[in-house]
């Protein structure tokens, strides 16, 4: 044959081996890519539920209830309403502390301060704490739904879902 070299590897033969190698390599990369994509959607997610019951409205004392801080909410009861405040500082995401003597939330990272209502009044934070959706379930318990967020600066705290009015 004309294009046979001294070592016995033809140009056509070399190219077909090269093609095979690249095809195998691409297939392996594609397979690992698919495996990686599958990895992003685990079968089981160990996340705390985004929506949970916290008890009946009359069971709460006036003021801030810190029992659900590990779930990321403060339940605040005033004479007029109950609402759920997010425990994430709107400045850079630390967890503020509730100082009952001073009646304010105070962030330990940069000193942002919020009133009981969640409105910011001191420190560097640009906006109030966020509120989560709350409603009374059929069994009379308050349900906090963290999937829905209400922001004061967007005028969303007037939304009926953002608080439970006490009659």
């Amino acid at each position: 044959m004309a294009d046979t070299t001294k070592e016995g590897v033809s140009r056509r033969g070399f190219l077909s081996w090269l093609g095979l190698a690249w095809t195998a390599f691409s297939a392996a990369m594609a397979a690992s890519g698919i495996a990686l994509a599958r990895f992003m959607f685990p079968n089981v997610l160990f996340e705390p539920p985004m929506s949970f019951k916290v008890g009946r409205p009359e069971e709460f004392a006036l003021g801030v209830d810190e029992r659900f801080k590990p779930q990321g909410v403060w339940i605040v009861k005033t004479t007029k309403e109950i609402f759920a405040l997010s425990t994430v500082c709107t400045h850079l995401g630390c967890t503020p502390n509730w100082l009952s003597a001073e009646q304010k939330f105070k962030c330990p990272c940069h000193g942002s301060g919020y009133y009981v209502s969640g409105v910011n009044f001191e420190g560097p934070t640009p906006r109030p704490l966020e509120r989560f959706a709350v409603f009374v379930a059929d069994d009379g318990q308050v349900v906090v739904d963290k999937n829905r967020i209400f922001q004061y600066e967007k005028g969303q705290w007037t939304d009926p879902q953002s608080h439970i009015l006490l009659s």
Partner: peptide, 9 residues
Amino acid sequence: NPSSSPNPS
């Protein structure tokens, strides 16, 4: 623990 930041952080 995400639910309690050291004070001061």
